[in-house]
């Protein structure tokens, strides 16, 4: 009970729950859409989804400031690659939030005569750029972990043991590739925060890619990926040790 109270008392906690609900509704709608008997339920789910979306948009009104502040902090990082990736990601997120605010103001009738489609696409562009920068950071961190592991003597012994243990697999798979995959798997296993962040960003990527028509999937895939991403978000928020630092 205490965990629930602590979780819901924070803005981000509630936002993650609303996001998960929104994507769960979208996924259910996609699954039940073809069933004519469930038309009433589909309509209800669509209403809830729209309500969650509108609520989240209003809740995100101050997020531009948060992103700018995060960009300010990331500028002070000593690692050049991390500094570049995180600053660019946060600036992109700030611009995405700004576009989102304009769209919200338009939806409630505060701003008229704006091209909603244009602003929506612009918002998705900034979101995509932010995700690409976050993924670049993730791959950079993974690469650093792999290199760190490769230099470790104990680990090299463990790796050669793994390759020699399964010669029939080694014949089929290229030994170097097998070693690399083993290295990658072990690195991610020992750093779940990096693995979760990478998974979350990959899942999030399908939304803007689909919207911008770069890589078109369908509403079901986007909703499913969004739901997975939200669940990971809730998990990393509930257990801060699973949240990637910097």
């Amino acid at each position: 009970m205490d965990t629930v109270v602590k979780f819901t008392s924070q803005t981000q906690g509630k936002v993650h729950v609303f996001r998960a609900t929104q994507f769960a509704c979208a996924l259910s709608t996609h699954v039940l859409k073809s069933n004519p008997d469930r038309r009433d339920l589909v309509a209800k789910l669509q209403d809830v989804e729209a309500n969650m979306n509108a609520g989240r948009k209003l809740f995100r009104l101050g997020n531009t400031i948060n992103s700018i502040e995060a960009a300010n902090r990331s500028m002070q990082l000593s690692d050049r690659v991390l500094c570049l990736c995180l600053t660019a990601a946060n600036v992109s997120r700030a611009l995405y939030s700004l576009c989102d605010n304009v769209l919200w103001a338009s939806s409630v009738g505060l701003i008229r005569d704006i091209n909603k489609e244009c602003w929506s696409l612009q918002s998705s562009r900034y979101y995509l750029l932010s995700l690409i920068m976050n993924l670049t950071r993730d791959f950079y961190v993974v690469l650093q972990l792999i290199m760190q592991r490769a230099r470790d003597k104990h680990f090299r012994q463990k790796m050669s043991q793994h390759v020699s243990e399964s010669p029939e697999v080694a014949e089929v798979v290229i030994p170097q590739l097998d070693a690399l995959l083993f290295l990658l798997f072990e690195s991610l296993k020992s750093h779940p925060s990096v693995a979760l962040d990478t998974l979350k960003n990959i899942c999030d990527l399908f939304g803007p890619l689909n919207k911008l028509g770069i890589y078109q999937t369908n509403a079901g895939v986007v909703a499913c990926c969004g739901l997975i991403s939200s669940m990971v978000g809730i998990l990393t928020f509930a257990k801060p040790n699973l949240n990637i630092n910097t």
Partner: peptide
Amino acid sequence: TVSQLEAHMSLTRKLLRLGNSVE
């Protein structure tokens, strides 16, 4: 417009208060 905005705020607040019974 003002009335619509007020209704939107009210509904959003209802959404934000979903877990408050537990608190």
